[in-house]
Design a protein around this nucleic acid. Structure first.
Length: 646
RNA sequence: GCCAAUAUAGCUCAGUCGGUAGAGCAGCGGUUUCGUAAACCGCAGGUCAAGGGUUCGAGUCCCUUUAUUGGCUCCA
C-alpha cells in the first residue's frame, strides 16, 4: 500500500504505521512526532497500523492537535503516578486543556502541596521507565466488566452513557489501565518536562448535584526550556493581575465588614470610571440616545411582569419576606430593562417615534454566590452603560449594526479591539425552566440574530445555554490574566418582553404592534472594564485615562514656586497634574513616579526655573527633552485629547 | 453554595519547641538643597482578621465566623 506523507507518496508494507515510515524518512528526529492524523481527520497512535493507502499527517507539539495529545498523555502519566501513591483513588476524567491538562480523582483527603511534589517525583520516575502505552479495544459489555473489576465506578458510568454498539478503547501502561480514546505519545519518556500547578475541587460531570472530586492541574512541554518559558509567562501574567496592581496602585480596596463583592473605588479608580462614563455618555448622545435615570429598586410586582421574579429571584437582593404575599416586598434591581421600559410606556407611541434609543448609566445589584466574586471582575454591585432600543422589525438589523458599531468604536479607542472574541449565546432547549417563551419564538429570534451576524460577516463562536432568559445575545468576551473569559459587552434581541409589558406603537396602517427591543451595553460594566484595562496595560493606563497624567519633580526648593506655576498651567489645560516637592533625591522621585505608572514627569531645577523650561521624561524613563513649559503642557494636552494609546 | 490556600504596622514580610511583638519601605520631626533606581539622625506606629476554647501562659494548638486568593458551579 501507499502512504502519502509530506506531499510525497511512499510504498510501504500492508498495515504498517506512520511511525515506521517516519523512522525510515527522518531517523534523526522522528521523536518529535507524537501522533498522526488520517485522511478522515481522525487521530491515531504513531505506531498503530494503518489499514489502507491514504494521506497521513504526522503531528508534533507545534500542531494544536499534537499539543493536545502530548498534554493528554501527561495527564495519564499523572494518573498512573497517583494510582501508585494513592491506590484507593478512583479515576474520573483527564483531558488536555488550553495550556496543559488536569485529571479528576475521587479521594478521601484533598491533595496537599507535599502530595503534588510526591506525585511529580513519581512521574519523573515513571517517565524514565520508557513505558509504551498499549492500546486494545473491548466490546461495551466486557469493557464495563473490566472497569467494574478494576474498581472504577466513574469509568463504568462513562461507558454506560455511550451507545450500545460502541467499541471501547483502553490503554495499558504496566499495571495501569485506563479507558481512553487516545491517541497517546509513543513512549511515556517523551513526557519529562512537566509541573503540577495546583489542586482544586471540581464536581463530577460539572454538576453541583454530584460529588466533588479532587482535580490536579498540570502543564507539560517537550523540553525543560519550553516549560520554564511557559512558567515564566504565567508569572508575568500574574504581575499584571488587576487584583494585585489595582490594590497596590490604589485604584480600589475591599473591607471585610462591608462585604464580599462590594469593592471601594479609591480616587484613582473613580477618576478612570468617571472619564469612561463621561466619554460613553457623550458618544451615545451623539448617536441619538436619550438618557433616563430610573430607581435602583422596585416592588416585586414589577419583577413578576418582567419574569425576573420567576427566573432570576436567586440572583436578587430582596427586602422583606418573599413568602408573605400580603406584605410590600422590594428588591434591588439586577437589570435595568423593566425600569427603562416605563419611559417608553409613558405615552402612546407611533412608528414615527421609532427607533427609540434609551440609555442609562445604571447601577445594578446581583446576589452572586459567595465563591464567585473576583476582584473588580465579578462583584455584587456594579454600574453598566445600559441601553434599550425599541424598533420595528424592519429596523432591527440596522439598529443592531449601530449597537455593534458603537461597541467596536469603544473597544478600538480603549485599544482592546484585538483582545476580544464574539460569542453568539443561544438558549438551551433542554432547560426550558430557565427561559420564557416557546421554542418557536426562540428559533425565530436566534435565526434573526444569526442572519444579522452573518450579513455583517462577524466571526463568532456559538454557545448553547448562554442566552438571557428572554432572548439570544451577542457577547463580546475578553480573557483576564488567568485565562478566564468574561463578557465585556453584550447586545441582545428580545421579541418577548415588549408584549409582557404592553409596549406598543401604532404603525403606518393604524394597527397596534409590539416593538422589538434590543438590550445592549456599549462598554458594559465599568468596574470590569477598569479591571481589564489595568491588566491589559499592566497599570500603565493610556494618558487620557491616567488618574495622574503628569508629576512635577523638583530638584531644589528654589524651583518650588515655578513647579506650582507649571502645575497650575497643566490644570488650566484640563490635565491632571501634581507636584512632588518632597526633599528626596531626584533619582528616587523619578523611580517612584515610574512605579506609579505616571505617563509624564516634568523635572526642574535651578536651570529650568531660570529659563522657564521643564525636562520631560516619559514613563519608560526616556528623556523626551527640555522645552518651554508651555510646549510640554501642549504635548501632554495633545496626547490627552487624541486619546492616544501610548 | 462546594473544594483548597491565606490573614502579623499603611505596604512587603520575619516571628523556632506555646513563655511579654520584629525588620525594611512608607509616615512624622530635624539635618541636608542635591541633576535621574533608595542621603543622614531621630520619633511614632500593633485588640497578631473577629469571636470562642484548651493551657499557669496562645501570634503560635483546636472550633466558629468574616474577608482575600485559586479552582468548580453559576454568571455581566
Amino acid at each position: 500500500m501507499k502512504l502519502e506523507m509530506f506531499g510525497e507518496a511512499h510504498e510501504v508494507p500492508e498495515n504498517s504505521s506512520a511511525g515506521e515510515l517516519l523512522k525510515a524518512l527522518q531517523p534523526e528526529d522522528f521523536k518529535k512526532y507524537l501522533a498522526v492524523r488520517l485522511e478522515d481527520g481522525k487521530l491515531r497512535d504513531l505506531f498503530a497500523p494503518i489499514e489502507k493507502s491514504q494521506k497521513v499527517e504526522p503531528l508534533t507539539f507545534e500542531d494544536e492537535a499534537g499539543r493536545k495529545v502530548f498534554f493528554h498523555s501527561a495527564s495519564h502519566l499523572m494518573a498512573m503516578a497517583v494510582k501508585k501513591l494513592f491506590p484507593a483513588a478512583k479515576l474520573a476524567i483527564g483531558p488536555a486543556i488550553e495550556n496543559g491538562f488536569y485529571y479528576d480523582f475521587d479521594v478521601e483527603e484533598a491533595f496537599t502541596a507535599e502530595d503534588l511534589a510526591k506525585i511529580e517525583k513519581e512521574m519523573q520516575h515513571l517517565s524514565k521507565k520508557s513505558i509504551r502505552p498499549v492500546r486494545f479495544t473491548l466490546p461495551r459489555k466486557e469493557a464495563i466488566q473490566q472497569m467494574e473489576q478494576a474498581g472504577e465506578p466513574y469509568k463504568v458510568e462513562l461507558i454506560q452513557d455511550l451507545p450500545e454498539d460502541e467499541e471501547l478503547s483502553f490503554y495499558q501502561m504496566e499495571d495501569f489501565l485506563d479507558l481512553c480514546v487516545g491517541p497517546h505519545v509513543p513512549n511515556m519518556s517523551y513526557i519529562k518536562a512537566f509541573k503540577l500547578t495546583q489542586q482544586a475541587g471540581a464536581y463530577w460531570r460539572g454538576s453541583e448535584k454530584n460529588k466533588m472530586l479532587r482535580r490536579i492541574y498540570g502543564t507539560a512541554f517537550p523540553t525543560k526550556e519550553q516549560l520554564n518559558e511557559h512558567l515564566e509567562r504565567l508569572e508575568d501574567m500574574k504581575r499584571r493581575d488587576h487584583n494585585k496592581i489595582g490594590r497596590e496602585l490604589e485604584y480600589f480596596t475591599t473591607v471585610d465588614y462591608i462585604g464580599q463583592g462590594l469593592p471601594i473605588l479609591l480616587p484613582k479608580g473613580t477618576t478612570v470610571v468617571k472619564l469612561l462614563q463621561r466619554w460613553v455618555e457623550d458618544e451615545e448622545e451623539r448617536r441619538g440616545y436619550l438618557q433616563t435615570k430610573t430607581p435602583l429598586m422596585a416592588k416585586r410586582d414589577l419583577y413578576k411582569i418582567s419574569g425576573h421574579w420567576d427566573h432570576y429571584r436567586d440572583g436578587m437582593f430582596i427586602m422583606g419576606d418573599p413568602e408573605d404575599e400580603e406584605a410590600e416586598v422590594f428588591a434591588l434591581r439586577p437589570m435595568t430593562c423593566p425600569f427603562q421600559f416605563q419611559a417608553y410606556l409613558n405615552r402612546t407611541r407611533s412608528y414615527r417615534d421609532l427607533p427609540m434609543r434609551l440609555s442609562e448609566t445604571s447601577t445594578l445589584f446581583r446576589n452572586e454566590s459567595s465563591g464567585e466574586m473576583h476582584g473588580l471582575i465579578r462583584v455584587r454591585q456594579f454600574t453598566i452603560s445600559e441601553g434599550h432600543l425599541a424598533c420595528t422589525p424592519e429596523q432591527v438589523e440596522e439598529e443592531f449594526r449601530g449597537c455593534l458599531d458603537l461597541a467596536q468604536y469603544i473597544l478600538k479607542t480603549l485599544g482592546m479591539d484585538k483582545d476580544v472574541t464574539y460569542r453568539f449565546s443561544k438558549w438551551d432547549e433542554n432547560d426550558r425552566e430557565k427561559y420564557i417563551g416557546d421554542p418557536k419564538d426562540w428559533e425565530n429570534s436566534q435565526n434573526e440574530m444569526r442572519k444579522i451576524l452573518d450579513d455583517i460577516g462577524l466571526r463568532y463562536v456559538e454557545a448553547d445555554g448562554e442566552a438571557a432568559f428572554y432572548g439570544p445575545k451577542l457577547d463580546i468576551q475578553m480573557k483576564n490574566v488567568h485565562g478566564k473569559e468574561d463578557t465585556l459587552i453584550t447586545i441582545q434581541i428580545d421579541f418577548q418582553l415588549a408584549e409582557r409589558f404592553g409596549m406598543e406603537y401604532t404603525d403606518r396602517d393604524g394597527q397596534k404592534k409590539h416593538p422589538v427591543v434590543l438590550h445592549r451595553t456599549s462598554l458594559g460594566c465599568y468596574e470590569r472594564t477598569l479591571a481589564l484595562l489595568l491588566e491589559k496595560y499592566a497599570g500603565a493606563m493610556p494618558t487620557w485615562l491616567s488618574p495622574i497624567q503628569a508629576r512635577i519633580l523638583t530638584i531644589t526648593e528654589r524651583s518650588d514656586a515655578f513647579a506650582k506655576e507649571v502645575e497650575g498651567a497643566l490644570r488650566q489645560a484640563g490635565l491632571r497634574a501634581e507636584c512632588d516637592l518632597r526633599n528626596e533625591k531626584i533619582g528616587f522621585k523619578v523611580r517612584e513616579a515610574q512605579m506609579e505608572k505616571i505617563p509624564y514627569m516634568l523635572v526642574m531645577g535651578d536651570r529650568e526655573a531660570q529659563e522657564r523650561t521643564v525636562t520631560v521624561r516619559n514613563r519608560k524613563g526616556d528623556n523626551v527633552g527640555t522645552m518651554p513649559f508651555e510646549e510640554a503642557v501642549a504635548m501632554i494636552k495633545k496626547a490627552n485629547d487624541d486619546k492616544a494609546l501610548d
